[in-house]
Amino acid sequence: MKRLNMILNTIMGASAGVLIGHGIYVVRDFKTHPELYIIQSAPWYTSILMYGAFTLVVLLVCIVIKAIVKRKMKKADSN
């Protein structure tokens, strides 16, 4: 169970890191090349929002799994 918890923590940290890294890249690229983003039909920050939504889903799933694991560990300890 500790190994699963460690894996879930790693997944949560990695997904948050990817969101932050992608956000920094897109903002920097927009500041450097704003003309490339003018011709797009979507706002320049759309990909950041999509990454954010995906990260939110991943974090929610990991938190639910962690809660289930914690509950099972408490039941195993009480027995």
Rank of each mutant, 00 (worst) to 15 (best):
Y45K: 01
W44H: 09
K72T: 10
G13R: 00
V57A: 15
S41M: 07
I7D: 03
M50P: 01
F30V: 05
V64L: 11
A67V: 01
K70H: 07
T46W: 07
I39E: 08
W44Q: 12
V26F: 00
L19S: 13
N5T: 06
S47N: 06
I65R: 04
L19C: 15
G17I: 09
V64N: 04
I24N: 04
A16T: 08
R28F: 04
G17M: 08
S78L: 14
N79D: 15
V64R: 03
V26T: 11
R71T: 08
K75S: 13
I11Q: 00
A67D: 03
A67W: 01
D29E: 11
F54L: 15
N9C: 04
M73C: 09
K74E: 12
Y37F: 14
V69G: 03
D77T: 03
V64M: 08
H33A: 05
T55G: 03
I24R: 01
I68L: 11
A42C: 04
N79K: 15
L36S: 05
Y51R: 07
T46H: 06
M1V: 06
T10H: 04
T55C: 14
K2Q: 10
N5V: 01
L4T: 10
H33I: 00
G21I: 06
T55E: 09
I48Q: 11
M12S: 15
Q40W: 05
I68M: 07
L8D: 01
D29I: 02
A14P: 00
L36A: 03
A53N: 04
V58P: 04
F30R: 11
I65E: 01
T55N: 13
H22E: 09
R3K: 12
R3E: 15
V57H: 04
P34A: 09
M73P: 00
N79R: 14
G23R: 03
Y45Q: 11
G52F: 08
A67I: 00
L8C: 01
